[in-house]
Amino acid sequence: MRAIYKRELRSYFNVMTGWLFIATLCVFIGIYFMAYNLFMGDPYFSTALGATLFVFMVAIPILTMRSMAEDRHNRTDQLLLTAPATVTAIVLGKYLAMLTVLAMPVGIACLCPLIIELNGTAFLKADYASILAFFLLGAVELAVGLFISALTESQVIAAVGTFGALLVLYLWEGLVDYLPTSAFGSLVGLAIVLLLICFLVNALSDNWKVTACILGAGAVALIGAYLADSSAFAGLLPSILGRFSLLAAFDSFSTDHVFDVNGLFLYVSLAALLVFLTVQVVQRRRWY
């Protein structure tokens, strides 16, 4: 894992992308820091961070697009997969290298609250908690990019796909509002979610018995709960999906100044899940 981590990290700085990523984030954090904190006198650095989030949508795909796709395109994956290293170690090495690149501009951003402190009152705890949330949100988005990059051989498709996925994540709350709130609508919606999960499980396990068990159990539970108390289903779909909003968790840090443990848990588990899925995708491909 160390070898891959070191190589990936070095290659981010051999070919521009690492520098570009760091420069973009620094410039935009700097601009919003100057505008909100230095000129408008907002004592919370988290306001500037919140405004910078949209830059992730463009910068993250640039960083992640080559992570898995390039190896497949250049056939260097043959070297990695025939070396005595596990797929998990390979994927983790790459992911950690990207996290390290992300940590650099975030590390620089850590100076900003201190600059505010020099010029007046700063809320250091709230600001550093927000920076942590900012970093973890970036980590989730990197994992999204890593996963999409593993699905394709083309870096362009990986970049565009990641951009699309991140856009959906940013619009998540708005999109959730359009979902049906009636009890029956929720039932149908949850059934679709169940089907999607079963589809994923089937693709990963290639074992239709497992899939059928999950599908059967899920369907019985859903229909049973619906028949028992259909009124509980009203508004259930939006409220369940709404919990997966990545921005809501960040907002509770940056605007409400609350240390949102649920949000951190959501970030870490989502990132872990996506890395796990990436490993599975690479493992599975050897069978086809």
Binding site: R7, R10, S11, N14, V15, N74, R75, T76, D77, Q78, L79
Partner: peptide, 8 residues
């Protein structure tokens, strides 16, 4: 195809 990294 030799699995090489051109940037190294």
């Amino acid at each position: 195809l030799p699995p090489l990294y051109p940037d190294m």
